[in-house]
Structure formats: C-alpha cells, structure tokens
Simulated assay, not measured.
Amino acid sequence: MIKSQNVMIKGTKDGILLRLDDSCSFQDLMRELEAKLSFQRWEEEESHKISVRVHTGNRYLSEDQREELEKLIRSAKHLIIESIESDVMLKSEWERKKRESEISLVNKIVRSGQILETPGDLLLVGDVNPGGVVRAGGNIFILGALSGTAHAGCYGNSEAVICAAKMNPSQLRISEYVSLASDLAGEHGRETACAFLGPDNEIVIEGLHALKGVRPQLNRFMEGGF
C-alpha cells in the first residue's frame, strides 16, 4: 500500500483532479504518481476517455519537467490532460498566457492572398476563401466556410482546435502538425465540424459533439454560441 500523500487523486463530475505536493522532490513525486496511476483501475472501454486536471501548488515546472509529467499521465491510455495549473509562473509566461487567452472577434471575408493572425483565440464571422490564411495562438472558430488554410496553436499549443460552420480546407495546421487537402479526402464539405490532434498527433475531423470528450474545457465557449 502507498502511504505517501504527495499525490492526491480526486474524482470530479468532469473527470479527475491530480493534486501534486510542492514540498517533495520532483523525482519522488514522479515515482509516486507512476505507482498510483499503475494501481488505479481505469475504465476499460476504449471509447471512454477521462479528463485530467493537474494542480502543482507552489511548484514551478520547467519545460522538461512538464513534458515528463505529461508523458507519464498520457501513458495511461484512457487519460486526457485538460490542464496543468500552478500557483506560480514566470512573468513572461503570465504575459504570454494573457495574450493567448484573449478572444479576437473579426467580421470579414479572408480572401486569397490575405493572412489574418491573432495571438489568442480567433472568432471569425465570415469565410476563409481558397488562398486565404488564418492563424491563431489559440483556437479558431469560423462562423462561415473554411476553404483556405487554418493554423491553430501556431505558437506551439497542440491542444488547440479548429471549428468551422463548413469545413472545406485546403490545409489544416495545429501547432507544428499539418494535414493537406489530399490527407483530408472524404472530410470536405462537412457542416459544423471541428479538427483537433488525435492520440498519434494526426489531425482528426469530427462533428462538434466530439469536443466534449477530447477538449472538455471548451464546453462553455461552444455552448455559448458556436
């Protein structure tokens, strides 16, 4: 039996919450987390995914530590990381998060040769014509037809999504991952569809209902009017 309480696992209505102690060493924390994730009995149904929120208290994670933590949690195949939160962050990170959390509302048609870029989420009321490009540091929501190129999470956010009232793209990009029109055969012309990175870092296109399982943190935004 694991007696240490450096890792607390709490069930919530939206998934599970991992509270990680901020006073022990990072390696001790990782060893205990690995043991508890291995001991836990997860739902065996393949289609059932469990959303995980992680809180690290007053522990600031370096980029390498964050990657190690994410890799360990994702090794449990039914777990999807919703967020990793800390009570502390670098000033530069705080400023970046502030920019990327802002929503830019734009009412226009992005025509061939035009590029529209925002640091946070983009809500575009209009179309993206063939040859047009939209880029966002966060998510992209298009209340119109997407026929050009859309690049969400363009600063490295692999959790970003692309949603369109009509999905007919020439190219989709999420973070550094790309799908060309030829990769999306059979997906063109879909109504109210969303694109996101699947477990193998391939870009997947599904109906909007899929976001509830893969990106539960977007529910409030989507229910608010997309």
Rank of each mutant, 00 (worst) to 15 (best):
E45R: 14
I174W: 07
Q40I: 08
N201H: 14
Q171M: 10
G213H: 04
R173I: 02
I16E: 01
A185T: 15
D22P: 02
E187D: 10
Y177S: 13
F221V: 15
H48N: 12
C24E: 08
M1I: 11
V7Q: 02
V128H: 03
A152W: 00
D183V: 06
V106N: 02
L180W: 07
I142G: 00
E176M: 08
Y155T: 10
L18H: 07
D28H: 11
S147T: 14
C194S: 10
I140T: 01
A181D: 15
I9S: 03
R96N: 10
K98I: 11
F221A: 15
V128G: 02
W42C: 11
V128F: 03
G213E: 11
G11D: 13
A210C: 06
S86N: 04
V110K: 06
G126A: 05
Q171F: 04
I162W: 02
A195V: 13
A210P: 05
I205E: 03
H55M: 12
A181R: 15
A145P: 06
L146C: 09
L33V: 00
K10M: 03
S179I: 14
D21I: 01
K212H: 09
I2N: 15
T12G: 01
M222V: 13
K98C: 11
D87A: 02
S179E: 15
R215E: 12
G189K: 07
C24F: 04
E159R: 15
D183W: 07
R74A: 05
K77F: 07
R99P: 00
S147A: 15
C163L: 13
C163H: 11
Q171E: 13
R66V: 10
L69S: 05
